[in-house]
Design a protein around this nucleic acid. Structure first.
Lengths: 230, 230
DNA sequence: TTTTAATTACTGACTGGTTAGTAATTAAAT
DNA sequence: ATTTAATTACTAACCAGTCAGTAATTAAAA
């Protein structure tokens, strides 16, 4: 299919003929391997991704992979976990910043998610988790509890406070978080699936700001949703 | 798995006990096979689904599969196409019904999508298409043009009319359709991935109605979004 | 109707290509 | 010289796709 491939990226040897460098970088390898693995798992799925391919993208041979990971499955788990910590940390940081400003917290959460997760390489993880949930139920459960449910709780708290303080009108709290975040997940998924096949999709910033504007208008009912419009 | 097998040649059939019917149903087979295939592709992905598994779920042997489909890929395409026609037809029908009632059309579209697509077996197709887009770019392009872009255009037209008639406030039309539909796609994807792993998720009806309520409040700005609240 | 022939739907053991994982080997670093 | 990072060559298992053969059904002959 893909086809051009060529060599395996000889890391730009100085000049002479094709001498492969064969560098040794024990400490940097795991990161490089999980990054390559994540990109390919997101693009093609777990089963359709060949270990040779992952190794080639990371600039090593397949055997090297097994110096750092016990199995393909272990590599998958490591690649996912790589994206879990940043997501959690980013979420926690927000509570400190917008602790008692519901409108700012909702806006900040959505913008921060897109900036730090959705628009980065981690933006492919939701698509990957949804696709592989049945094949890796434990990983999916872990991801759900460690990342999704935490984010959901954070958003729900923000909205609950907004309702309590009269800024937001009453809405069903049990469904509000997925309603707020799903357009962003959808955009991230889109960019990691269909978008590469057709030229020029929607503008992410416009999409994001329109979403924020729409839901804040919806939440605030009659009153205007105060705060800087970016 | 099955494993009774026994010897190599099952010529001895008279035993009387466990001989399966081996019914002949030439006309019903393709449907049964695509339905089984779709369910398994949605659950595990294309590459991770074994043809033996699909055949077993449809109650036939793997050889039979090849009487009706040329290859695993052909079966995949057939399974997707199976879900394309209903989606298109459902969309077209709506324009006739709510041709000049923007609020009703938006509400009707979202409810109809969930009822006729999202909550059915076809509800797994978006997840499947996103996951396999890079592996089957032609199928993904076809699905995008035949289904997604049509639905997007339909929704955009509805909102544009609403703005023109003063019912909706002005919003960015280029992003409004995915913003309206993505929470539903997300719910359908959720139910076909993580939900089966954890007991009791959100209530689909509550989720759907809250979404409709929220976006219509957002679109209508100050004024109330008239119409029956279900 | 009963028997026999022809056809059709289906089966499951087999094969050949593919690939995750391993063992033997080489090269760099200390 | 010894240790360790990395490569290469290999193996065992798996699975899409095939095909020789079997059971069910239909048609024709007796």
């Amino acid at each position: 299919m893909a086809g051009k491939a060529g060599k395996t990226l000889p890391t730009a040897a100085k000049a002479g003929a094709e001498v492969r460098p064969r560098r040794r970088r024990k400490d940097a390898r795991p990161q490089e391997l999980t990054a390559a693995a994540l990109a390919l798992f997101v693009e093609k799925g777990f089963a359709a991704t060949r270990l040779d391919e992952i190794a080639a993208r990371a600039g090593v041979s397949k055997g090297t992979l097994y110096l750092y990971f016990d199995s393909k499955e272990a590599l998958f788990k490591a690649a996912i976990e790589e994206g879990v910590l940043p997501a959690i940390e980013a979420g926690e940081a927000l509570l400190d910043e917008y602790g008692d400003d519901p409108v700012g917290l909702v806006r900040g959460f959505l913008r921060a998610w897109w900036e730090q997760i959705g628009s980065t390489a981690y933006g492919g993880i939701p698509k990957l988790m949804f696709a592989e949930a049945a094949n890796f139920p434990e990983v999916a459960r872990y991801y759900n509890e460690a990342v999704i449910q935490r984010g959901v709780a954070l958003l729900r708290t923000a909205v609950a406070r907004g309702i309590a303080s009269g800024v937001f009108r009453p809405v069903e709290l049990s469904v509000i978080s997925p309603l707020l975040i799903s357009p962003l997940i959808h955009l991230a998924t889109w960019r990691n699936s269909i978008a590469p096949l057709c030229g020029a999709g929607v503008d992410p910033d416009c999409y994001l700001e329109t979403h924020i504007d729409l839901v804040l208008h919806g939440l605030c009912a009659g009153k205007k949703p105060d705060g800087e419009p970016r």
